[in-house]
């Protein structure tokens, strides 16, 4: 059951990656940063899976993944925003975040080998705030990347708590240890499905018209 959830999540991610890449090279262009995010997510998921099978600690990659996720989604939303002050806001959150992560990495590199609570909280919060900002801008305008934003906010709110208690679950007994990760895999699957839906709504027609 857990494997099914995890691998169907990967599958949908791969499908999304292919579909969005196709649309990226067609007339109606998909935002490049979002495609980059999908590529990044796919590579990270695959490497995590690989390290897991090789019995290495892949938590370092988890931390890299959430930081990269924040940066790429930040750039993605930054490119959608048209108001100067908001662009500045997004950029400053990104740069402050990256500086803090670097400082933390040099002071306490050990933190990056487990679930880094601070990084998780900060990255997820930033993504939620970027999403809300985009929602705010969309209020009176045409909907762009509407479902993606819903998916991002939904996934961030759900998975953050699961990541935050990650260190706790490491010490649980085998029977219940993976429960939260099954839940996370389910959230990831839903997340990717909504992104797929966005593609169907926004890009399906435009990419395969001619």
């Amino acid at each position: 059951m857990a494997d099914f959830l995890i691998y169907s999540g990967y599958l949908i991610l791969l499908i999304n990656l292919i579909l969005y890449s196709i649309s990226f090279f067609r007339k109606e262009k998909v935002n490049g940063f979002f495609v980059a995010y999908l590529v990044f997510a796919f590579i990270m998921q695959m490497s995590m899976e690989l390290l897991y099978h090789l019995h290495f600690n892949n938590l370092f990659l988890v931390n890299i993944f959430i930081i990269g996720q924040m940066v790429l989604l930040g750039f993605f939303y930054n490119s959608l925003i048209k108001i100067k002050s908001q662009k500045l806001f997004v950029k400053s959150i990104l740069s402050v975040g990256i500086v803090i992560f670097c400082v933390q990495f040099f002071l306490e590199p050990k933190e990056f080998l487990k679930f880094n609570l601070f990084t998780i909280t900060l990255t997820s919060l930033s993504c939620v705030i970027f999403g809300l900002l985009h929602f705010y801008n969309m209020l009176t305008e045409k909907k762009v990347y509407y479902y993606i934003t819903i998916a991002v906010i939904f996934f961030m709110l759900g998975s953050t708590v699961l990541y935050l208690i990650g260190n706790l679950t490491l010490t649980l007994s085998l029977d219940v240890k993976y429960f939260s990760w099954k839940l996370n895999a389910f959230l990831f699957l839903v997340y990717q499905l909504v992104i797929l839906h966005e593609w169907k709504v926004s890009f399906f027609k435009k990419s395969f018209e001619n």
């Binding site: 909280t121 919060l125 953050t160 935050l164 010490t171 649980l172």
Partner: peptide, 27 residues
């Protein structure tokens, strides 16, 4: 097992979770 987790860690987790929700609520 829970007892094996250092108390500091537990407090930190609780703190971060509540902090996360507070900031999300404010946002």
């Amino acid at each position: 097992n829970i007892n094996n987790v250092p108390e500091k860690e537990l407090v930190a987790i609780i703190l971060y979770i509540s902090l996360f929700f507070i900031i999300v609520a404010v946002a």
